[in-house]
Design a protein around this nucleic acid. Structure first.
Lengths: 184, 184
DNA sequence: GTCTATACTTTGATAGAC
DNA sequence: GTCTATCAAAGTATAGAC
């Protein structure tokens, strides 16, 4: 009954890199076709909603990855400090030490923000809330936990921007270390 | 001998807002024409290099504004702390308390980064260096001055991203306050 | 399910009248 | 110096053969 067909999930990682590199407006179907090796017909077969549905799927995939590797560990680790350490490691790994960019952040800055506002907001909220929860369980009071979580989540985004702007491969790791020490 | 013709500088502020709102790829000549009230012919008269020259002019205009209102005060204020305070005030004003976005940061995250790499790098470098200079003159040692300047410049960018992502009008001011207290 | 061919729109840019 | 008309190329999306 179940068929072994190629699925959306097979295309998703390739799709993600195209959107990450070129942004929403800069990503054309020709570019997608080229990088996935799929014709437009196949792409529309997987994503009948076209480019917008593809971008939405990309955002959902990112949210899934972070939920598994970042948000959930932050909440469920019995030692909250270990969860926070795991978060910084996963973050450094995911963004390739700052060479990669955060698509959610890129979308947030552009005018497609409105179209994906719910997903963008959910990603940032989930991260900040999970981190605040870990900080609180680590002994911080509610207010300072939320403030520090906001500082770190924003700080990660800023480090990605600055690293790209200055072309400095070492900046991202340096900023992560600094924020890690703040969270201890 | 000198003619009182409309100049590029008259168009620049309008142009800047279009690029700020829609990014480089998202900004079409039709949009520009609509928001400036100028036909394409006039636009190409001012900017023979087309869209790329317009974007370059926008970046140059931003650099000019920040040099006057941020970088120079940081360096030339006899009281470095006053220069730093002026920087935070100008920054808050320029970005409309976080409702506006930083075009240079947006460009840095997209694939047009390479095309404008020199200008993007210059803007971030100038800011960070001027701030580090003020911090050093305020009594910090070289290393910690540079580190804190990096943290603040990146932190401002991150605050802009997070504010837009979460749709939180209060976030930017809150983060600026925090960074201001760090710099004192 | 995948491809090629194609429709239709919008893009950046140019030409030429005024 | 400004406009309208127009160009070739690239954009998203669809149709239909296989």
């Amino acid at each position: 009954m179940m068929k072994l067909i190629r699925e959306r999930s097979d295309v998703l990682p390739l799709l993600t890199e195209v959107f990450r590199t070129h942004g929403y407006e800069g990503t054309s179907l020709a570019l997608i076709s080229q990088h996935t090796g799929l014709g437009k017909g196949s792409l529309y077969n997987f994503f009948p909603g076209g480019k917008e549905e593809m971008a939405a799927a990309v955002l959902d995939g990112i949210d899934r990855w972070f939920r598994i590797h970042v948000f959930d560990p932050l909440r469920s680790h019995e030692d909250p400090r270990a969860g926070i350490r795991a978060m910084f490691e996963a973050t450094d790994r995911y963004f390739h030490s700052g060479e990669r960019v955060c698509i959610v952040g890129v979308f947030a800055l552009s005018d497609v923000r409105d179209r994906f506002a719910a997903r963008i907001n959910a990603y940032f909220s989930a991260w900040q809330d999970a981190l605040a929860d870990a900080l609180r369980r680590a002994g911080r009071d509610e207010a300072s936990a939320e403030d520090l979580a906001e500082e770190i989540v924003a700080g990660i985004q800023g480090a990605l921007v600055a690293a790209r702007a200055l072309g400095d491969h070492t900046l991202f790791g340096r900023r992560l270390e600094r924020m890690k020490s703040l969270a201890e």
